[in-house]
């Protein structure tokens, strides 16, 4: 009999198999929601799909009279700006530091311990410090995201550079490369796909830090909205917001993967 580890689904079957659990989850939700509404038509814990659609439509189309903005759009823009800036700062920092730590042993000896030390601090524990030092505005939220993921990415990238075959660096030196050329012509290009990969893996933690910061002190943003309407038990807003955040995360991941495949075909074994 064929071993189960050797059964490989075809492409169509794989898609179908992947959709099934998601469809099952949605179905279970619909049935549970129906059951609760049959018992109590005013139930707020498991809102019906139509109730969620209504709530989202309202947030996505009508202008909030108190702020003068469309809530969903302003929340999304505010959160994505924070996330984008935090990720950009973390990416730039970790790229430069990772490169230097990876190829200059002297820098590794000097900066390695402090990067390790910062990396083990739980970022949420630093949040009060950031609020005190940077105020309750945008800076502290962006700083939390950057501080939360930069040390991890730095260590990841430094380890990757240090793990490149030593033969490559020797060969480059026999071809006349100086330290700078080793960095920008040998290490940096090979680091780029790894950078995107590290960024993809850091997206999850980055969202956690964003929502935590928004939950604590903010007046706009996806995380802020969820924690705000929680007071009114407004699951018809919370659940679609969570789904919207997941959708944004999936889209960001897909875009990064596309950029990596397109920009660095040699790293994905493809042709030019």
């Amino acid at each position: 009999m064929t071993r189960i580890v050797n059964i490989r689904p075809s492409r169509g079957a794989a898609i179908l198999a992947g959709v099934l659990p998601i469809a099952a989850l949605v179905l279970v939700y619909i049935f549970a929601s129906e059951a609760r509404h049959a018992a109590n038509p005013a139930d707020k814990v498991l809102p019906t799909l139509s109730a969620m659609a209504d709530a989202m439509l309202r947030l996505a189309t009508t202008v909030d009279p108190t702020t003068g903005r469309i809530t969903l759009i302003s929340d999304t823009i505010a959160s994505l700006c924070r996330l984008g800036l935090g990720l950009a700062i973390a990416t730039a920092t970790s790229l430069v530091l990772g490169l230097i730590l990876g190829i200059v042993p002297l820098a590794r000896a000097t900066l390695g311990p402090i990067v390790t030390m910062i990396a083990v601090i739980p970022p949420i524990a630093v949040l009060p410090i950031l609020f005190i030092a940077l105020g309750l505005g945008e800076a502290s939220k962006i700083a939390l995201i950057a501080i939360g993921i930069a040390p991890y990415m730095t260590r990841d990238l430094a380890a990757y550079v240090a793990g490149l075959p030593v033969e490559q660096f020797v060969k480059a030196q026999t071809l006349g490369a100086n330290s700078w050329q080793l960095a920008i012509r040998v290490a940096l290009p090979q680091l780029m796909p790894k950078l995107i990969e590290a960024l993809r893996f850091s997206m999850g933690p980055a969202w956690v830090f964003l929502i935590a910061a928004e939950a604590v002190a903010s007046d706009m943003g996806l995380g802020y909205r969820i924690f705000l309407v929680r007071r009114y038990l407004a699951m018809d807003i919370i659940l679609p917001y969570v789904a919207w955040i997941s959708l944004l995360a999936i889209a960001a991941d897909a875009i990064l993967l596309f950029v990596s495949r397109r920009g660095f075909p040699w790293a994905h074994g493809g042709a030019r």
Binding site: E167, Q168, K171, A172, T174, G176, P189, F264, A267
Partner: peptide, 17 residues
């Protein structure tokens, strides 16, 4: 290592990128 001595290793001698 310097440019007056060239080298070819068994593996990893060329740049994959």
């Amino acid at each position: 290592c310097d440019a007056d001595r060239g080298v070819v290793f068994q593996r990893y001698s060329v740049f994959p990128h």
